[in-house]
Amino acid sequence: MSTTCLVVTLLAAAMSGFSAGSVFLRAPWVVQPMADYGVPRAWWTRLGAAKAAGAAGLVAGLFVPVIGALAAVGLILYFTGAVVTVLRARRYAHVPFPLLYAAPVAAALALA
């Protein structure tokens, strides 16, 4: 495994973990837009858990590559769903935010 792959994977895991933690801690800059997009409050913990599991899977993938690949695909699907949700809410200026989190995950998958 190259140093680049290691750094990008750890960055992707850290960003996904930070995003999950923001949902768990109900950070206003995360949960207010989710409420505005129409995401039911009952889903928030599960969505945070999905991101946390993806972050953990990326780290585990450093030791078992298939787990990392599956975690990356899951996170990419998650963030694709986030983009669709933002678009459906017609908050076009917010589209870059999920893409910002998806980019290092996609890069980690490509480098793996």
Rank of each mutant, 00 (worst) to 15 (best):
V59W: 02
W29D: 15
G57D: 06
K51L: 15
A82L: 06
S19K: 05
I67K: 09
R41P: 01
L111Y: 09
R91K: 15
V84M: 08
G54I: 03
R90N: 04
L109H: 10
M34G: 03
I76S: 00
A12E: 13
A71S: 06
A49K: 00
T80I: 02
A93P: 00
A110C: 13
L111D: 13
L6K: 11
P28C: 00
D36K: 14
M15V: 13
A12I: 14
M34I: 07
A35Y: 06
S19D: 12
Y92I: 05
A112V: 03
M15A: 15
M34Q: 11
D36V: 07
A55Y: 03
P65D: 10
V7G: 05
D36Y: 05
R90L: 03
R91C: 05
P65V: 07
G74N: 04
G57L: 04
G21C: 08
A53C: 12
T45P: 01
V105H: 01
S22V: 00
T4V: 11
D36Q: 14
M34F: 10
A72Y: 06
L70R: 07
A49C: 07
V23C: 15
W29Y: 15
L6I: 12
G57E: 05
R26E: 15
W44L: 07
A110K: 10
P65Y: 06
L70V: 14
C5L: 11
A55R: 00
I76R: 02
A71C: 08
P96E: 07
S2I: 04
P28K: 13
R41S: 13
S2Y: 01
R88N: 05
F97V: 14
R88T: 04
A108C: 13
V83E: 02
L25M: 13
A107D: 13
T9W: 01
Y92F: 10
P33A: 09
V95F: 02
A93C: 02
A106W: 10
G21A: 12
M34D: 03
L87E: 09
F79D: 02
F97R: 09
A71K: 03
T85K: 00
A50R: 09
A93S: 12
T85A: 02
G61N: 04
Y37A: 01
I76Q: 04
A49G: 13
P104S: 04
A106R: 08
T9A: 04
A42P: 05
V30S: 06
D36E: 15
Y101I: 05
V59H: 00
A27V: 12
G48Y: 06
F97W: 13
A20L: 11
L111S: 11
S16W: 05
G54E: 05
V95N: 01
P40E: 01
V39I: 15
C5G: 10
A106P: 11
S19W: 10
G17T: 00
I67V: 15
A52V: 07
W44D: 01
L99P: 02
A110L: 15
C5P: 03
L75K: 09
V86I: 09
G81W: 09
A56T: 06
A52I: 11
T3D: 15
R41M: 11
A72V: 09
T3G: 06
V59S: 04
A108M: 14
L47F: 11
F18T: 08
V31H: 00
A53R: 05
Y92P: 00
L58Q: 02
R88L: 05
R91G: 03
G57N: 05
L58W: 01
V105S: 02
L109I: 10
L109S: 08
L111Q: 12
A89Q: 01
L10R: 14
L99T: 05
R41K: 14
